[in-house]
Write a protein that binds this DNA or RNA. Structure first.
Lengths: 206, 206
DNA sequence: ACAAACTGACAGGAGTCCCTGTCAGATCAA
DNA sequence: TTGATCTGACAGGGACTCCTGTCAGTTTGT
């Protein structure tokens, strides 16, 4: 296929290709949330993005690339929100944790597709699962760091703190997944409270 | 297709059909563990079970039926093992929990496919996810009950105890999944210890 | 104005998958 | 033995997926 170098429709070549890629990723996120992995075919992605199949290969080598891009996309959103809240909140560690939980619950309430992709459909393929594990690790470290602030750096050995974070994040992910799919009936506030409480329970000193 | 009523090869009709079903379920478990949901096609299941496609519809209406049967199969094994251990072990609640964890870790070590299906591939489709949620609920109740014995029935409100169990089981599932896929390096003993410790951490009195 | 670049529509080949149907050969009951 | 039953092998329709390729029409820079 020809490489874009000229302006078209008043927009530069790079502008157009990144826009197309963005539309494809957005379509992938939406389809994953609505129809799961097997329903997120390349044809369906292109149709939803209103682009021809040809443009799919302009941005991705395989279908799985698009799935990974979708997962990365929603995780960036989540991480950005969490980091933003942590930077802006300056109370006790408990308050900081609570604020992060609240912002996350708020995010997935406003954009359920973000939560569904991040938490429900993120282990559909081995590659996705691997990425999910990395991402969980990132959040687990964040959790472990906050627990160290809360209860002192020596409350738990580093390795234990990490596993603790892993189990907490994964458990929390399942809780949110059940909440998004309606399997668990809670208000957003109750969900936030429960998640914060459980974090404190798990990480407080032996 | 003709309904089996006659004996063949020295075995009754019912014997043959249940045997075929058993082989199909076993094949489905193995394929799920090895190649995931999308790799577990009906054709592949039949090939692995050394049976014709025709016999697939003797036991299942759709492919998803076979996947559900596979999940049920491994969960029955897990539950049976857990209940068996609980019945036989008569020490302190901590010891009982530890014994259950050890038996589970032992089971998935000897038959990784059981663990992989139960824990890694159990949310591949919406139907599977729903069943997985039910099953997690069952184990969560079991965990909540044990926690009530450990710390008294009033340590936590019933609803909270249930959510606590849910989060713990899901977190534990992810831990085991990471262990089975080699993403977390621990010995079987370390895994058992960590899991038991985390349970105690999470469920002890506020 | 005109050639080059870019775009969308669509055709179609190769590969799978699901599911049904046919058919020769093995096995059984009478 | 013989006719009904059961089994495995396999063919093939219909639908779908991925991916490539063609081509007319639009937009651009010169």
């Amino acid at each position: 296929m020809s490489t874009s170098v000229r302006s078209y429709g008043g927009r530069s070549a790079e502008e157009r290709t990144t826009d197309r890629r963005h539309r494809l990723v957005e379509a992938t996120v939406a389809l994953l949330a609505e129809h799961g992995e097997s329903g997120t075919t390349m044809t369906a992605i292109c149709a939803r993005a209103a682009l021809t199949e040809r443009y799919f290969y302009e941005s991705f080598a395989h279908r799985e690339d698009a799935l990974l891009a979708a997962l990365d996309q929603v995780c960036s959103q989540i991480a950005a929100a969490a980091v933003g809240v942590l930077e802006q909140t300056s109370g006790s560690p408990e308050q900081r944790v609570h604020a992060v939980m609240a912002s996350f619950v708020d995010l997935v309430s406003r954009q359920p597709s973000v939560g569904l992709v991040a938490v429900v459909h993120s282990s559909a393929t081995p590659t996705l699962r691997a990425r999910r594990h990395e991402l969980i690790g990132t959040f687990a470290d964040l959790v472990a760091a906050e627990a160290a602030v809360l209860y002192g750096p020596d409350a738990w050995p580093a390795e234990r703190a990490r596993l603790q974070g892993l189990v907490y994040i994964a458990g929390f992910a399942e809780l949110v997944a059940s909440w998004l799919t309606g399997e668990v009936e809670l208000s957003a506030e109750q969900l936030t409270e429960t998640a914060s409480d459980l974090f404190v329970s798990l990480s407080r000193r032996p």
